[in-house]
Computed example of a mutant assay.
Amino acid sequence: MATRSPFRLGTRGSPLALAQAHEVRRRLGDAHAELAEDGAVEIVVIKTTGDRIQDRALAEIGGKGLFTKEIEEALLADEIDAAVHSMKDVPTWLPDGLVVEHILPREDPRDAFFSPHGDSLAALPAGARVGTSSLRRQAQVLIARPDLTVEPIRGNVDTRLDKLAAGTVDATLLAVAGLRRLGKAGRITAALSVEEMLPAVAQGAIGLEIRENDERSRGLLDAICCRDSGLRVAAERAMLETLEGSCRTPIAGLAELSDDGAGLRLRGLLAMPDGSAVFRADLQGSVADPIGLGKALGQELLASAGSDVIDAITGH
């Protein structure tokens, strides 16, 4: 009898991306006996434009879609069965024929702070240099501490921490989720509260993208999907889509479920990259309509900022 083709997971080749792909493979094996066998789930590494260009900020080279484009092309060409993404890297617009319907249980969405000077932005000396290529982090750093200097810094976790150790910068920020998935959480100086540093939309969430008409993949992934994480990500991404956000726009957002699981609280932030203007919104809604909640909060932020500020923030 012919053996069935392996289930192919497409992923970037960074240590974090591979850790996420292995997590998906482990969860699939736990959920389906036939996928627990050796070779039943294949991890296919695909190099993306965002991985190839490391010397410039994402905003300069086209935004976060540069981490998904080549993987989506492989998916459309039937070279893989599912794409494994960090959802914070996925644009709100997807190519025709592709869908993201499955979100794994979300990791800690907070930002990790690293510095030999203390455990918060407040502890940094005047004029200290904070290394980050994220406009979201840059804006919130400068909102809290206008006296600090933000310097662009890209690369994987070890590259960024090596630059900190070498004294190139005085502090840096990374996602707690990625550090936990890499087994490096013990190196975190402190996890910043969401009040101090609101996370990126969908930070800590792994999403699985498939072809819309691929019922085999959909059926296999249904077993590892987390409903609550999906609701939270849907609300946050609806807010982002309403704001037409990109890597050129400092936007933050976090949705959290109420204790009874019936409600959602969504917080959002829109800012100037230099921290000179910031707009915040905080709304409650029902889990029955996370997208409606996200759109409503996005509209509230747009109304608060006004067209002139929006044009200034987005560069239109």
Rank of each mutant, 00 (worst) to 15 (best):
P6I: 06
L9Y: 03
S14G: 13
L18S: 02
L18E: 08
G29D: 11
D30G: 04
H32W: 13
A40L: 12
V41F: 03
I46T: 05
K47M: 07
G50V: 05
I53P: 00
A59L: 07
I61Y: 08
G62I: 12
G63D: 08
G65F: 03
L66F: 00
E73M: 09
A83I: 08
D96A: 14
L98F: 01
E107K: 10
R110N: 15
G131D: 04
T132S: 15
L135R: 09
V141S: 06
L142I: 06
D147I: 07
V150G: 02
E151W: 06
P152V: 10
R160S: 00
G167V: 08
T168E: 15
D170G: 08
V176T: 14
G186K: 10
R187M: 11
E195Y: 00
E195M: 00
V201C: 11
G204R: 04
I206D: 00
I210E: 02
G219A: 14
D222Y: 00
D228Y: 05
E236R: 04
T242F: 01
T242L: 03
S246L: 02
G253S: 15
A255Q: 14
A255S: 15
D260T: 09
G261H: 12
A262Q: 15
A262E: 14
A262L: 14
A262D: 12
L264C: 10
G268W: 03
A271V: 02
S276I: 06
A281P: 03
Q284H: 13
G285A: 12
D289R: 05
P290V: 08
L293D: 00
L297C: 11
A303F: 03
S304W: 00
A305K: 07
G306R: 06
V309E: 11
I313V: 12
T314H: 14
H316T: 06
